[in-house]
């Protein structure tokens, strides 16, 4: 089953997504971490997420780029967090593939395959498209790619949930 969860920054979407996995019951739990620890702020964010997950039984699998190659050892529940990082890493990180028309299809096909293999896949997306005109054409292209991925995933997902101030809003079920 594929679940897509989205919200703005600081909306409580991660906590909601973790709890969605816990509610699915006892099974192996994987946390696919996409964030590359960039500077003190990045490390602080990662620490915050780690503390939030502590004691919830997640095995962390680092996957900042090349998501479609991800292999997990067991069948269970997977939390992929988050799409904004995954897309940004592919574009800008040293191990990424850079700008490519294949980016969105590759990520979405990877997620689709994973959701076929696993019992539950919860993907966290980002509601960051409401801030008017981006400053540069590069940011515009990034937002466009991210929106493409999210639109595709929302259509593939059996369940879509928006999180606002920690509150669940059912978008599709």
């Amino acid at each position: 089953m594929l679940v897509f969860v989205y919200g703005g920054s600081g909306s409580g979407k991660s906590e909601y997504a973790e709890n969605r996995i816990l509610e699915a019951g006892e099974m192996p739990r994987f946390y696919v971490a996409t964030m590359e620890p960039f500077g003190a702020e990045g490390r602080k964010r990662i620490e915050r997420h780690r503390a939030l997950r502590a004691g919830k039984g997640f095995v962390t699998v680092e996957c900042p780029t090349h998501f479609e190659e991800l292999q997990l050892p067991e069948k269970g529940a997977v939390l992929l967090e988050d799409l904004s990082n995954l897309v940004a890493n592919e574009i800008w990180s040293e191990h990424g593939r850079g700008w490519s028309d294949n980016l969105c299809p590759q990520i979405c096909q990877g997620i689709r395959r994973l959701s076929d293999e696993q019992r539950l896949v919860v993907v966290v997306g980002n509601d960051i498209h409401r801030d008017g005109e981006p400053q540069t054409p590069e940011m515009e292209s990034y937002l466009s790619l991210l929106a493409q991925c999210q639109t595709t995933l929302a259509s593939l997902a059996e369940e879509v949930t928006e999180v606002v101030c920690g509150i669940k809003i059912v978008v599709k079920e």
């Binding site: 703005g8 920054s9 600081g10």
Partner: peptide
């Protein structure tokens, strides 16, 4: 709701958001 745009360039704005 401040979190629905791109990450601010300025560190204070990021912390504030």
């Amino acid at each position: 709701e401040l979190g629905c745009g791109l990450i601010p360039v300025d560190a204070f704005d990021r912390e504030y958001r």
